[in-house]
Design a protein around this nucleic acid. Structure first.
Length: 119
DNA sequence: ATTCTGACGTGGG
DNA sequence: CCCCACGCCAGAA
């Protein structure tokens, strides 16, 4: 049986991970937010919370991925610097009714959306 | 191959 | 609440 040239065929992990993150991000309801770790955990990569942020980095250019609804566990807009402009991320959130003060989301525990719990 | 960094999370003090 | 150190995985130089 010759199958040796392709190292993968049953387990794909890499590019798909990014798409996974996008899928979950798109599921985030309007006016709600979630954290990188929660998404990572939902995907089964709880230890790769950083990779979620990295995936968001690749989402730069995609308008179908609401990356502005994804913040860190403290509810701070850690990645606002990666958006266009200086406060674009905050603008988008406030546009949805999310109150943001000093890069800190107010009532974060209330508007928090956990994919593990909601899905 | 190695090294460093990064949109994070957790635990201890 | 704050600060510090470690782990973690993927990609770039």
């Amino acid at each position: 049986m010759g199958l040796k040239d392709k190292k993968n065929t049953g387990s794909e992990s890499g590019t798909n991970f990014f798409e996974r993150v996008y899928e979950v991000a798109k599921l985030i309801p309007y006016g709600r937010v979630t954290s990188y770790g929660s998404i990572a955990k939902y995907l089964g990569a709880a230890r790769s919370a950083r990779m979620v942020g990295w995936a968001m980095n690749a989402c730069n250019g995609r308008d179908d991925v609401p990356a502005h609804r994804v913040v860190n566990r403290k509810g701070i807009l850690t990645g606002k610097h990666h958006f266009q402009g200086t406060n674009l991320m905050q603008q988008l959130l406030e546009n949805e009714g999310v109150v943001v003060i000093e890069n800190q989301i107010q009532d974060f525990d209330i508007i928090f959306w956990d994919p593990m719990q909601e899905l």
